[in-house]
Amino acid sequence: MNVPTSFFGWVSFLLDRYGQLFLQGTGVTLLVALSGTVLGFVIGLLVAIVRTIPLPKGPWYRQLPLRVVYFLLNVYIEVFRGTPMIVQSMVIYYGSMMIGLIKRGTPVLPAAIFIVSINTGAYMAEIIRGGIISVDKGQKEAATAIGMTHWQAMTHVVLPQAVRNIMPSIGNEFVVNIKDSSVLNVISLSELYFTGKSAAGNYGRYFESFFIIACIYLVLTFTVTRILRLVERKMDGSKNYTIYGSQSDSHSSITISEEEA
């Protein structure tokens, strides 16, 4: 076997030998980051909906259940935002093993997705809370005033606008998850960083190997950022609208298009 002598020689050698492995690692990283972001978003939404339920009026014991729930949710948010994900991974993974929830040798992927989701959920809850505050509270009042419930007002009026306002932060969480899922190598998840480490170790070519890995991460995050920009555009909807009917002809219509801001 010819041993490469140059930087680019090693890069193409490693790509040739480990291309398949890197591709699998990329797949795992994307899968964990995407499902972690989506599930974390759902967790964040639910937490935010619960945290915005107005306290019932009346004696303290009627407020107690909700206050307890608020408290527990705050604990959850503080704990997961206040400790590194790498530590959370160890605690959750080995903790569940100790209490027999998972066995040695079972696939680590579900645990990995759980860890990223629960961690992202804590950040999302705060981001979404910010999004809710950004929606003028008069709209919630108007929804209440026509008889909508808290749930209806949140899901049909407040949250769609809150989510639109926080799209950049949600995208940011996704990008962070693509990068930070690398810490899951401590529980031996074969994501991108882990595959890079394996490849590097076999030949002692750390620089070349991680140069490749860095490029892949960069392509991933760059692509994801562009796609999210497009999604935001889409959410803003058409800037055009149609005015129907006129005094003389009720079937006429004209379309008004606003200039792009």
Partner: peptide
């Protein structure tokens, strides 16, 4: 302040 639903 009208309070129309901005997303509809």
């Amino acid at each position: 302040s009208f309070n129309l639903f901005g997303n509809h």
